[in-house]
Design a protein around this nucleic acid. Structure first.
Lengths: 136, 136
DNA sequence: GCTTGCCTTAAAGCGTACTTTAAGGCTTAG
DNA sequence: CTAAGCCTTAAAGTACGCTTTAAGGCAAGC
């Protein structure tokens, strides 16, 4: 079963233009065409786009995705390199988890300061930026 | 105690050009100057840049940071709005945590598939992209 | 006094990842 | 037969966040 670009777009929740762009960039090799030259997507292609979307959402660059595509096209002998890429990416994911945790801490801290100010527990002058205003 | 831009840059691990850029964008109001027109940074400014860096690393846009600066400059009456912004940002952080978790799952899954192939447990044809190659 | 190294500004340039535009072709409904 | 609605391509445009360039000023060391 094959899908038109419109069907692919709907199933992926991703603009058709973006899918074409990915193909043009070499991220979607071996997309067949019908007699009119229209793209025919297989389920595998959709799965791969979904995986790319998942990786993209967490900061993987298109250039790295393309590297992985190229390695995959070179066969099983490149599996060690693909593993290395994924393991490195995994390290980045851990870094990002830490960054998120830090940002969450900072947000919660800021929110609790706002609460304190609202309840008159601390004067606003101890608040960042407002202090700057004072020193004006 | 005030710092030159070079000192600020060193302490923040952030290029001086970027700090100037932030000031130009209104993200660092009320930076004083010495008699030669050189910027003098207070500890508060460094703290705020650090917080911005933390928020930026997790996807907050400069335009939103600027909104928060502007609200802060308008005084305590804008605290509800600032809280609303931070609470919304917090929701985004949770979304990102989920995205990271999903990506980690996907990476681990892919890695285990590679292991299986390397150990001959499954044929490479079941592997994404390589299947595409086959259908060529 | 002149070089070095910092500082200043304004403006242009860059990388990433799309997104939009323009120009045109096939197919199906009326 | 013609208009709607999909498809195609190539190329230009956009948004964001810096980063680099250009042109020049002050200040300390030799």
């Amino acid at each position: 079963m094959a899908f038109t670009i419109k069907e692919a777009s709907e199933r992926l929740g991703c603009p058709a233009h973006t899918i074409r762009f990915y193909e043009k960039e070499g991220l979607l090799p071996y997309i067949k065409r019908d007699k009119n030259g229209n793209r025919l997507f297989e389920q595998d292609h959709l799965d791969w786009v979904r995986l790319m979307t998942c990786f993209r959402a967490t900061g993987m660059k298109l250039s790295l995705l393309k590297e992985m595509v190229n390695l995959a096209l070179d066969g099983d002998s490149t599996i060690p390199q693909r593993k290395a890429i994924l393991n490195q990416y995994k390290e980045e994911l851990f870094l990002r988890q830490n960054e998120l945790a830090e940002a969450l801490d900072a947000v919660n801290n800021k929110l609790s300061i706002y609460e304190d100010i609202e309840k008159g527990r601390i004067p606003s002058e101890s608040q960042l930026l407002i202090k700057m205003e004072e020193s004006e």
